[in-house]
Amino acid sequence: MSLSNILEDWSKYRKTREDGGFHDYEHMWGMAIDLNKCIGCNACSVACYAENNLAVVGREKFSKGQGMHWMRIERYWDEPDLGEGRVSEFNQHGANFLPMNCQQCNAATCEPVCPVAATYHTPDGLNAQVYNRCIGSRYCSNNCPYRLRFFNFYSYYEDSWPAPLEMQLNPDLSVRDKGVMEKCTFCVQRIRTAKDKAKMENRQVQDGEAMTACAQTCPTSAIVFGDLLKHFNPDADVVETQVTNMWRTHQVELGRSSQNKQNPELRGYRVFEGLNTDPCIMFLERVREV
């Protein structure tokens, strides 16, 4: 393991990027978020708080941008005004929601800048964060184009869960201390449990067995989570999942800096594809004139 291995893994993807770049991956966890289904109810965000022991920082620190929400709903308005000083009669209508959690980029910008290699790519295609190794330089957060890394500026655990509330903490996850960077892990504890269970029964991980908290909670099933490896590596010994099907239907490929949008049926895109970060989360939204 250690530094040399991490750097090797990183460069391996760079070299084999045109061919997919993950032929020896065990899994490649990915997501598809249908923005036409998203109603912006924030249930995913709440579920993430409950599942991942996220600290509640309070209004004051939140307004300084120190909120610890690994899953956030970004809100955009369709028609704020109609020009010429006229405001739309329905200016409270036309909100668009964009759920944003860590995009688990294959060519993640946060990974090569970490001075202690606390963030690296796992053989599951996850962008991992090792809390014990993190020294809190915050370089990764500054290099993340999505602003989806969150830093523990204070010992939030002291105030976040007063007396009986610490009983609700998830024991499958550590509670992060001051000076540590954290981010969405695709609920790695659930993935780990599903993989352990499958291995104990000598079988593959089934579709829907590993399920993130946000995907499980979404009332409109806008978030679909699963193993993507079959899409990019048809010879891989993994099951065909729903999310694989969605990526294939919308012809979204890795290694591209933009997706085919000529056909209105193809709605898939990824955020900031032009930066060549190769995220593992596909959003579904039709391109339209606003």
Binding site: M1, Y120, T122, P123, D124, L126, A128, V130, Y131, N132, R133, D172, L173, S174, T185, V188, Q189, R192
Partner: peptide
């Protein structure tokens, strides 16, 4: 297994 996230959580 030799992956950090296999044992660290």
């Amino acid at each position: 297994p030799f992956d950090c996230w296999k044992c660290h959580k």
